[in-house]
Design a protein around this nucleic acid. Structure first.
Lengths: 337, 337
DNA sequence: TTGTACGCGTTATCAC
DNA sequence: GTGATAACGCGTACAA
């Protein structure tokens, strides 16, 4: 039972207790050099007995690592990113690293400022979750700091990108609807400034064309990944009187909004219109009816990103890859009657 | 246009450029002492010209502040806490502070360990969002560090507690159902290890008794704040064959699960059973039907907690208070027919 | 293999 | 008011 909060045990005190020099203790801590077995055990014993914990702040100043890594994300309080953050936190925590979360608010300038703050705090690495910062700017950052990005494919030294196949996901969702006999499939887009949103839409269009259907712009309505934008999109769609039998929302949140709009107009899902989303949020299982959607592993994404960062930090080359998209059939779709 | 990432401008360089001593620059930065106007402007000019940014790490080591504050929360990826984290981040960011988020995983021991890590990182303060750590342990922490807690009422030096009236919220929700004529109101509890869960339940019971009803233990089913626990609670309730016309779930997530269970049994909300939740998550507006619930301001909670921390840090005595609970009537409740 | 001395960038404590 | 000087706790050349 080590003393829980005894007044600061320093490396120097450990050195004194073990009758060695501070550098030797440091070496053992960092594995910087080989030390003889007897001194090593003496030091380790002293560390345990005194309950020594290295000070990350001092470590950072001394040019070493801060054991903290910065995470910039689009949002903090969105279900998808929440899951990713949890994955990052757990994976990083396992290795003794602490995450520094900041949200870019979907704003490239703000994002750049956040990255600046993070660097000033000397994070050992940077994980950018679907950020909006430009590729070249990111590449520049990566020159002085290991970087892991998601949501884009990018090659650069010291940078690893983890890419989820949003195109394929969009294709799968649309294909599911097609296979059910739907021919007039509406699409609610995500924020067009994000690559993932564009990719999902491309997938939608590709599936349509593969089925020999002509793409109808009247069936595409803009959204912005929020529930309310999904609701409004459907209202607009309905008001336009363009006929359709199914809706593919570019994310689950918009699908939920869409479901409500349909409900308000006394349209039944899936009886009157089939509905599919994208992301497979936990709440997709509990919506009424449970939502058919593309599985997008948020938690796993966070875990893998953090794992890749840890590998980068260790001088290894990450090999992690995201699983391929799968479509989850629940109860929001039905074959056209 | 300041050089974006010019190689480290230090305080010492600023001092040289302004022809003053480092101490003077430091004094101006921290407002530690009065300096003459001319030197002050010279320094400010140099700071701006060189684009100097103080190094938080060095600051921390020097015994000063790290400008970072630790946040321990129950979970990272729950809608309610997500909102709170956003509030904390924004309010803190405004003042130049960075949040260090960690989740306690609803485990007191893990929480204590997290707090230890946070302290080793020299956070300037600690915000505990509905944590499970004991009051005395928390009081001890508060002796060396400003602390803001939510979810409990606690008086101690250097500690400020922000309390939401969960009892009143529980009472309000139950009262709403009562006023609609319901007499057999089931209650799905939260995790009994949390004070908020117990308070909500006490509110439920108080409202019942105020209405002259006898409390029926058969109508109380345990949950754990997750959607699935709400679903299972309702199934258990239905299987018990205890009659009821309304359900009060101790949080919205469980209400969503409850709604699904009801749906599966072909019971209509609010036609067959009225349903109310607690928290007023963003998704409550978009559930089908939209959920009547107790408004629990997550974002505001985070903001206020962060604001109180900032005041504590400034040596002031926080005065922030959470608004009183309000019940939001939507479409999941109906008077008994 | 191990110890010494210095530096990281800033604040605090003294003198002036 | 202002400027030296000493920490803060650790990593790391360099020397031994």
């Amino acid at each position: 039972m080590a003393p829980p909060e005894a007044g600061k045990v320093t490396l120097e005190m450990v050195a004194a207790a073990a009758a060695v020099s501070p550098s030797t203790v440091s070496r053992i801590l960092n594995g910087t050099a080989v030390v003889s077995g007897d001194k090593r055990s003496a030091v380790e014993e002293a560390i345990a007995r005194l309950g020594f914990v290295p000070d990350p702040v001092a470590r950072g100043l001394a040019g070493g690592r801060t054991l903290s890594i910065g995470i910039v994300t689009r949002t903090l309080d969105t279900p998808f990113f929440g899951g990713a953050l949890r994955g990052v936190e757990e994976e990083l925590g396992r290795a003794g690293y602490s995450p520094l979360f900041v949200s870019g608010h979907g704003n490239a300038a703000h994002e750049a400022r956040c990255i600046g703050t993070l660097r000033s705090r000397r994070v050992d690495g940077l994980i950018v979750l679907d950020g909006r910062i430009g590729d070249t700017a990111l590449g520049a950052v990566a020159q002085g700091l290991p970087v892991v990005v998601t949501g884009r494919t990018l090659k650069a030294p010291g940078l690893y990108s983890l890419h989820f196949d949003n195109f394929e996901g969009g294709r799968l969702a649309t294909h599911h609807l097609l296979s059910l006999g739907h021919r007039r499939i509406a699409f609610i887009t995500g924020d067009a400034r994000h690559a993932d949103a564009k990719d999902r839409q491309r997938g939608y269009r590709a599936a349509l064309e593969a089925a020999g259907l002509v793409f109808d712009p009247a069936l595409v309505v803009p959204g912005s990944y929020t529930e309310d934008s999904g609701r409004m999109a459907v209202e607009r769609l309905l008001d336009s009187r363009a006929p359709f039998s199914a809706i593919f929302a570019a994310n689950d949140q918009m699908a939920f909004g869409a479901a409500l709009a349909l409900h308000r107009r006394h349209l039944h899902v899936p009886g009157d219109v089939s509905l599919v989303g994208f992301d497979d949020l936990q709440s997709a299982v509990f919506s009424i009816p449970p939502l058919s959607t593309v599985h997008h592993p948020a938690y796993e994404l966070g875990q893998l990103a953090a794992g890749a960062m840890l590998q980068l930090l260790a001088g290894e080359t990450p090999t992690a890859r995201l699983p391929v998209p799968r479509f989850i059939v629940r109860e929001s779709t039905r074959s056209v009657g």
